[in-house]
Design a protein around this nucleic acid. Structure first.
Lengths: 246, 246
DNA sequence: CAACGATGTTGCGCAATATGCAACTAAAGA
DNA sequence: TCTTTAGTTGCATATTGCGCAACATCGTTG
């Protein structure tokens, strides 16, 4: 499987642009890509001419262009999973009082593609389009446990409770697979506890995961069994709606 | 300005993917790009390896990958509301003849971050950067009604019409929420009447408000329905421009 | 069941194309 | 005004992407 170098470089530039809050200049791109300024210049202008990058007229720096917004809308609108899942997220939040999310596997991360926010003032903020690590989030663990090609390369530490030992994670994921849901007990963000369950598609494969996140004080150990039962019930109902025969 | 051919081809593939509801096969790409199947194959796999395209395991057809959702999220988060709203303010002033404003919530006040002044001699003076109270201005009421973290501590009296009773304000804000716009009938400055409507961002949250202000003699009760219709139309169009799906 | 067609991938030689260098331009500081 | 920093363009070179053809993989049909 041959990779086209100049296309790959262009895509890497997009990745860099995604992380550059204040935009970047030609020189920085050249440096990061280990190419000459001239090459970077030509790549950037190619991206710009297609609307994937935008150049500030004054500073000459480049930022991500609006073209990706259109593409994103296409992606999200075509996701039947999202349309079917949304009412379930609403019910999930309604019945639990906590913020609910829908995530899919993307590039070895959990990509949040929908959410319904908790009505309470104290809540977990998050955004559609963000990607979270698999090893320390409930949604991520579910995707890791039930998807075929899911893998983790590294296990960075986020909180004292983050699992960083590959063997421990393996056992943990085995357990997730057995019990049919996953939890995240302040392993990603201090004070935030989550649970998640898999969503199965018509072919019996896991197509995504839904879950809730809330402050540890509210998502208490006593409430967890009830919350988990609600969650799994809704996840299974959604799976059946999607044509899963499970 | 030289264009890098293979990057351009990759971006053209993204454009094609954006329009392909059901995905596309290698052959179709090759045909549309006038290249050999082999080249199309390599380009597609390069895109796929970066998450910009995705291949259905069964049909082998390619669709847009979820990577663009993340990029879009970055773009939208960085979108300076001001830049996008300005042309709408111009249109608003052009169509109504009154001064128009863009405001966001800041520190429990309405912060005016942009304006377009009325062409007429008799006009309401105001400055970008000023902050107005929420309880007695149209923009403020909209932000109060539609933003989450908005709250008012005190209700100081400005004119005889200023609402100073918390309960009355609560009911008033409920009404604003129901009708989708707010008005200020000389409640802040004697002789000045305003209307305002919410502006929604890509995530469906209210990111700001736009409105018009004018002398009560010109912004008459008879004209209000027409002015309100214009305002709401522009506010909604701006919201859509910002990626709101409402 | 074998032969076929449709679709996609890989190896390879060739030439088109992307690259780096250097010269040039433009803008910003000193 | 001179210097520094940042980016663009021309050009020669060889790297890189290209098409061709052979191969692989399905699914179909006689």
């Amino acid at each position: 499987m041959t990779i086209i170098q100049s296309l790959a470089r262009g895509l890497e530039i997009l990745d860099m642009l995604a992380d550059a809050e204040q935009g970047m200049g030609i020189g920085e791109f050249a440096h990061h890509l280990n190419v000459d300024k001239s090459s970077a210049s030509r790549l950037l202008h190619t991206l710009a001419s297609y609307g994937y990058a935008e150049q500030d007229a004054d500073t000459r720096r480049f930022t991500l262009g609006p073209r990706v917004v259109t593409l994103s809308n296409r992606v999200l609108n075509r996701m039947p999973l999202r349309d079917h899942a949304h009412p379930f997220l609403r019910r999930l939040t309604h019945e639990t009082g906590e913020c609910s999310h829908l995530a899919i596997l993307s590039q070895g991360r959990a990509l949040y593609i929908d959410q319904v926010e908790s009505p309470s003032i104290l809540r977990v903020e998050s955004e559609i389009g963000t990607m979270s690590p698999l090893h320390c989030t409930a949604l991520g663990k579910v995707l890791l446990a039930f998807s075929r090609h899911a893998q983790v390369d590294s296990l960075p530490l986020f909180t004292p409770r983050t699992i960083t030992d590959p063997e421990a994670l393996k056992l943990h994921i085995e357990q997730v697979r057995r019990q049919g849901y996953a939890s995240d007990d302040e392993e990603h963000v201090q004070g935030v506890r989550c649970i998640a369950a898999p969503v199965y598609g018509f072919n019996g494969r896991v197509v995504g995961a839904i879950g809730i996140s809330g402050p540890a004080g509210r998502v208490s150990y006593e409430k967890l069994p009830a919350l988990t039962e609600t969650l799994i019930g809704l996840a299974d109902e959604l799976s059946r709606r999607l044509g899963s025969s499970r």
